[in-house]
Structures are given as C-alpha cells and as structure tokens.
Amino acid sequence: MSPASIKICGISTPETLAACIGARAEWVGFNFFPPSPRFLTSEKAAGLAAQAEGAIRRAGVFVDAEDAFIAKAVAAGRLDAVQLHGHESPERTAQVRGRFGLPVWKVLSVSGAEDVARAAAYHEVADFLLFDAKTPKGQLPGGIGLAFDWSLLAAYRGPLAWGLAGGLTPANVAEAVRRTRAGLVDTSSGVERAPGIKDVDKIAAFCKAARNA
C-alpha cells in the first residue's frame, strides 16, 4: 500500500505554510469561509500562493459560496482544486466544476452508513470525495476535532479517489490510514495549539506519522 497523500487544512501564515512544505505534505487548504477562525482574505491568500507556487498544491475550502466569491479566491490563491464543504447538491457541484475547470472535491459529512451511501450521487459530478465527521448542530463545519466511526467506510466502493478527515491527529493518523486505506488524510484542528493557530511541530509529527503508516 502506497502512503496516503497529506493535506494540512486551514493554513494562514508563511511559517506554517513553510512547515507543510518542509514536512512534504502534498496539499494545503486555504479556508475561504468567513465565519471560520481559519478564514483567509484574498490578499493573504495571494501572498501564501506566491510562497507555495511549485512547492505544494492548494485546495480552496468553500461553504455554499457563490460563483463570484469562488472566482476571486481561485485567482488569488492560484488554486489547484475547489473543495465544497457545505450543502452543495450534485447539481451545484457539477456547476462549479464546469464553471472553473478545476478538480472539485466534495466533502461528505458522516455519522452513519446512510451518509456514506450519499457518495453515489456525486460520482459523476466530483473529482474527489472527502469523508469528514458530521458537525453537531450550531457549530461551524469542519475543524472541530471530531472523528466518526471509520468502519463505516469498510464497505464503500466507488469510482472516485477519496480521503479521510475528522479528528485526525499525529497520534491516530497512522491507525486511520491502516484501517481505512484512505488515499488522502486531511487535518486541521489536529495540528493546532488553539483554534486557527497551527503548530509547526504538530504539522511535522502528523506528516511523519502518516508517511510511516
């Protein structure tokens, strides 16, 4: 089994971006959801994109965003993929894919088998699926450190490449890779010392653990 690709989401400073590059993560996530503590303005995204160019790929994280907002972020962040983390329907996912000509990642929030089954609706309209823990009512989507029952993915067989998110840390990511055989692992709060504040040592530890799984 080849090592899972690694994505560190919610990167917002040159120092933590450098840590991701140094730890050989394949992806960073730029968060374009304004209520999030990890939110990036277009101006900040442009600066980080210049630093990342040629060194690491960039996915932009959006939650039920309109085309004009996505377009501005795609240009500023020089994005390599658009990650849809809201309630985007298959139809909306297809629209985004057609409009921007970039790979579209659809996040599916999981708490039960029926949530994994929803993946089938996106097989024709997304390029990649990311299974994440379902957010409790009243909380912002993603980045809350919750995991879901990984055994729910055991029976999943779909045509798309997929990844795992939700509560992944340096301590459990190796087990997650071994148990789920995910092609990509994605962490945000699992490498933070406070909401939105990444820890460079945790980034390095996460990448090392994922690679050695």
Rank of each mutant, 00 (worst) to 15 (best):
143 G>D: 14
132 D>R: 02
137 K>P: 00
190 G>H: 08
59 A>W: 07
136 P>V: 14
75 A>S: 14
126 A>W: 02
83 Q>E: 08
121 A>G: 05
90 P>W: 05
147 A>F: 00
113 A>V: 13
61 V>T: 03
111 S>V: 06
71 A>H: 03
76 A>Y: 02
134 K>M: 07
102 L>Q: 06
160 L>Y: 09
157 R>D: 01
159 P>K: 13
155 A>T: 10
195 P>A: 15
172 N>K: 11
173 V>Y: 01
184 L>I: 13
103 P>E: 15
97 R>N: 07
102 L>E: 13
165 A>L: 05
102 L>R: 10
57 R>W: 00
66 E>F: 04
186 D>Y: 04
146 L>Y: 13
106 K>R: 04
163 G>V: 02
179 R>H: 05
73 A>T: 02
79 L>K: 15
64 D>Q: 10
120 A>N: 06
116 V>A: 12
185 V>T: 01
93 T>P: 00
112 G>T: 11
165 A>Y: 02
82 V>S: 14
93 T>Q: 10
190 G>I: 02
111 S>W: 00
134 K>F: 06
171 A>Y: 01
78 R>D: 12
157 R>M: 07
99 R>E: 12
167 G>M: 06
136 P>E: 13
74 V>F: 14
190 G>R: 13
176 A>C: 09
81 A>G: 05
138 G>Y: 07
175 E>F: 06
160 L>I: 09
84 L>V: 03
157 R>C: 03
169 T>E: 07
94 A>R: 12
152 L>T: 03
125 V>N: 12
126 A>P: 03
125 V>W: 11
86 G>A: 11
118 R>Q: 15
190 G>L: 13
96 V>L: 12
57 R>F: 00
97 R>G: 04
109 S>N: 15
58 R>C: 07
102 L>F: 04
83 Q>S: 11
92 R>D: 10
132 D>F: 01
129 L>R: 14
127 D>G: 15
181 R>K: 12
185 V>L: 10
92 R>G: 07
129 L>S: 12
173 V>A: 05
179 R>G: 07
126 A>K: 04
138 G>V: 02
149 D>P: 11
130 L>V: 12
78 R>H: 13
168 L>Q: 15
104 V>K: 13
162 W>F: 00
93 T>K: 07
89 S>N: 05
76 A>G: 12
94 A>V: 11
174 A>S: 15
98 G>C: 10
142 G>T: 02
182 A>P: 03
190 G>M: 13
72 K>F: 15
87 H>D: 09
70 I>K: 15
158 G>R: 09
145 G>Y: 02
83 Q>F: 12
181 R>N: 00
142 G>Q: 06
62 F>W: 04
155 A>P: 06
194 A>K: 07
123 H>M: 10
178 R>L: 00
